[in-house]
Design a protein around this nucleic acid. Structure first.
Lengths: 154, 154
DNA sequence: TTGATTGCAAATCCTTTGCAGGGAA
DNA sequence: TTCCCTGCAAAGGATTTGCAATCAA
């Protein structure tokens, strides 16, 4: 993500906090920065570990509370791949949104499917729905694991 | 779901158990039957309650263990809507697969989008991936909640 | 007979919450 | 000064696991 994107998000965060009578504390800023600096998915606990390693003090409780705020501010989204634990990812991470996941080895392909946009617009119009986010994922077996599974069965 | 579908699934279950050296116990059969008789989504605990009400003895542990087997046998799938608890649904429940969920009130629209099939085939071919399942969901605000949110902000 | 399966209760894992002290506006 | 926030530790909820008795094959 470019620096200017990060500034946009930072602005969004500030405005969201203000509009809700919330305060911009140093802990919230630390968590915000780390979340935006993280590529791809992460769990709440990942952040705790990373921040500990970097010597930045934040409690687990504050991380959970702040991540919830970042989701409400639409800076992060929750994703939940095939029943795994809840992960977070940046909402403005455009090119990596759709997933194909191998059920066996966990390998994950990420891509962006512009074709989905038309489908989405259609639905939102029909139901008068305001889309904030979407998620598309395919679950199955990757090349390698198709073969392995085959061998096991024979 | 028709009776013959249920038989097909029952067959699938038996075969899966056999091929893994697993046994078809009365508890597993009870859970299988109840899972397939359930319309739409359910949680592990829902099943426990229902079975208790019907006077069928099964422990929570066995339910969790059996549901895991049913997922591996591709009779059920896990779905996780926007960070909610894990739900299960039948894999062969064709017409209700894609979701649009209101982040505010939790209202859920369900539908089937045949347009997605082409996209999926494309991807699977490109990556030589064997799709077992997919999931498409839109998250946002429904008609009613768009208005409410608007009022709050003004 | 043999090894898989069950139920129970304890253990775990992830997340939320109550509360007293500290901090932003 | 006034609430909002934080960290801690305890609570909660969902899921898993160890173990002895039980049961399908």
């Amino acid at each position: 993500m470019s620096g200017s994107d990060q500034n946009t998000e930072r602005e969004k965060f500030s405005l969201f906090l203000q509009s809700g009578g919330l305060k911009l504390t140093s802990e919230r800023l630390i968590i915000f920065n780390e979340a935006l600096a993280t590529e791809g998915h992460f769990e709440a606990d990942d952040l705790l570990v990373i921040l500990k390693q970097k010597g930045k003090k934040t409690s687990r409780a504050t991380i959970y509370r702040t991540l919830e705020i970042l989701v409400q501010a639409e800076i992060l989204r929750k994703v939940c791949l095939n029943g795994e634990a809840v992960h977070f990812e940046k909402t403005n991470d455009q090119p990596r949104h759709d997933h194909m996941i191998c059920r066996n080895c966990g390998k994950r392909y990420e891509f962006h499917l512009p074709e989905l946009q038309g489908i989405q617009n259609n639905l939102c119009q029909r139901y008068n729905f305001r889309m904030q986010d979407y998620c598309f994922q395919i679950v199955g077996l990757c090349t390698d694991c198709v073969e392995i599974t085959h061998e096991q069965r024979n």
